[in-house]
Design a binder for these strands. Structure first.
Lengths: 107, 107
DNA sequence: AAATTAAGCAACTAAAAAGTTGCATATACA
DNA sequence: TGTATATGCAACTTTTTAGTTGCTTAATTT
């Protein structure tokens, strides 16, 4: 399909997926597929698809217990996004002069 | 259509758009539509559409001069993404305990 | 054992996004 | 003035993504 970072960006580009991810991050315990779907105005299968997308990029991992599948967030996976942003942060405060610093930091 | 942050995420989720944006960031001067299109294996119109998408979210702004349209990157717009990430960074090192700190910092 | 609950899979529809072709317009240049 | 260049606009095709319906399987509960 496409490279990792593109998949990751696409995963978080969808508002429903960001919501699911957020719900999992702030949840005190893992949530089952049904528990998650109940929070959305969408069929369980729709939600399942989104969870699968999140799982594929590593933002979510699943813990099967009996017939239930408990979902957990793995926010560390967002480090890739931070890494991508890192380069451009150099240009925020002054448009000139920071690129050199950035390159120096990589020598 | 959809909210600002979703548009922003979608804009950078496309690899061609990330490439265009990157080319503009590292360019020593503004680049015309034609100059940009020449760097891609795609029609000029295709590239123009991508530039329009980037422009709509503020990642690119245009400077018209005669018949030419010079494109510039505006990386500051990525601050929104950093802001979104900020919350989740709390969970990178230890899964528990950091949420409290985050909330405290907002009191 | 029968009924209920949790979930997966596959096929389908609908809508959005990516990219193209063709044509029009305005600027610049010889 | 005539030609080449830079670009926009609109319609179209193709591909991808989002979401649904219907059915099946397997674990629980009564």
């Amino acid at each position: 399909m496409q490279d990792k970072i593109t998949k990751l960006f696409k995963a978080i580009a969808d508002p429903t997926r960001r919501d699911i991810f957020h719900a999992l991050v702030i949840a005190s315990s893992a949530l089952s597929i049904t528990q998650i779907s109940n929070q959305f105005d969408m069929t369980r299968q729709g939600v399942t698809k989104h969870i699968k997308t999140l799982e594929e990029v590593g933002l979510v991992y699943i813990d099967s217990q009996g017939r239930e599948r408990f979902c957990n967030a793995n926010p560390k996976e967002l480090k890739e996004v931070t890494k991508w942003l890192k380069f451009y942060e150099q240009f925020w405060d002054d448009k000139l002069g920071r690129l050199g610093d950035y390159l120096d930091s990589r020598v």
